[in-house]
């Protein structure tokens, strides 16, 4: 029988790589079998649709198709960038994302640290169940709940003894948007950190207790190092999505009176593309959004790698 080397045999880096390549070559059929479906799906649903980017450079007419439509080059981009509302949409999008990231990103981490402190497994399970549940509510239902709670006759006003219509206040939009997002997503997002925290050595925690570390110092010395890499990867991914604020929630929480704060690039793209039928222009705006995202992702990854001993994506 032919002896097959282990994929990660002991030895130097180059010999490891060599063994891995030999292993792959000997079992190529297996790799093809597992990778082919994912590869095909990625090509069909991720790469082929990229051809649609060309719409951004045309005066797109669905009857004539991409190649039959008039080629306008960067006209749509120029139109968007020179529009008087461009800066407002961009800033609204950025503010919503950046503040969402600032408030929303640490929330699941803090939640995971707190959950990790609960000793009773049963209590922990019950709390986790309660925390995860909002994630399964659809965005539209969530927005409905928010609208009801914040209406002039809603629960919040009843508790405060006021009759303010929060949904008409541009200054309240971002807080409503971000807070409801945290309420809905923090529990679910904490799963990944809770799982990473389970890797923190129990003995190490006990050693820290004997060393005299308080809870904050224990988190710093034991728990944070256990989840640091996961946090960094999640952070890079989140920064990469900083401009991808989903239009549904912003659109569902939008009212005519809060448009000043709630009109963001994605709601604008939706309105222009689907409601006004200006496909070329909305694709150009969407592409602009994506390019900014890619630039942010690459720069943040480079920054994190520099700060974290070369570890990044």
């Amino acid at each position: 029988m032919k002896k097959v080397p282990e994929p990660a045999a002991a030895g130097g880096g180059s010999s490891k790589m060599h063994n891995t390549l030999v292993y792959i070559r000997q079992h190529w059929q297996l790799y093809v079998l597992f990778m082919l479906p994912a590869f095909l799906l990625t090509i069909i649903f991720r790469y082929i649709p990229m051809g649609g980017i060309a719409i951004a450079f045309t005066e797109y007419n669905p009857i004539r198709g991409i190649f039959g439509s008039e080629w306008v080059g960067f006209e749509h981009f120029q139109r968007f960038l020179s529009s008087p509302d461009f800066m407002r949409y961009l800033m609204n999008t950025l503010k919503l994302s950046v503040f969402g990231l600032l408030w929303g990103f640490p929330a699941p981490i803090l939640l995971a640290f707190l959950l990790n402190r609960i000793m009773s497994a049963k209590t922990k399970q019950k709390i986790q169940l309660v925390l995860y549940m909002p994630n399964f509510i659809s965005v539209i239902v969530l927005c409905g709940i928010v609208r009801i709670l914040l209406s002039p006759t809603g629960l919040v006003n009843s508790l405060l003894g006021t009759s303010t219509n929060f949904m008409t206040m541009p200054s309240a939009f971002r807080t409503i948007y971000i807070a409801s997002g945290i309420w809905q997503g923090a529990g679910w997002a904490s799963i990944i950190y809770t799982a990473a925290l389970s890797n923190a050595s129990k003995e190490l925690k006990e050693a820290a207790v004997i060393d005299g570390a308080n809870i904050i110092q224990q988190i710093k010395a034991v728990e944070w190092p256990a989840i640091k890499d996961t946090v960094l990867i999640q952070f890079i991914m989140s920064v990469g999505n900083i401009m991808s604020v989903g239009f549904e929630k912003a659109y569902a929480l939008q009212t005519d009176l809060n448009l000043n704060a709630s009109e963001i690039i994605s709601t604008y793209v939706y309105k222009k593309g689907l409601l006004d039928g200006d496909y070329g222009f909305s694709t150009a705006v969407g592409l602009f959004n994506t390019v900014i995202n890619v630039i942010l992702l690459i720069s943040m990854n480079a920054l994190v790698k520099k700060m974290n001993e070369g570890k990044g994506i």
Binding site: S201, A207, I210
Partner: peptide, 19 residues
């Protein structure tokens, strides 16, 4: 534990990996 004036050596060393 910190006030008992004891020190403990663990089976799995329990060293802080990032230090």
């Amino acid at each position: 534990p910190k006030d008992r004036d004891i020190a403990m050596v663990f089976q799995n060393y329990a060293l802080y990996p990032h230090m």
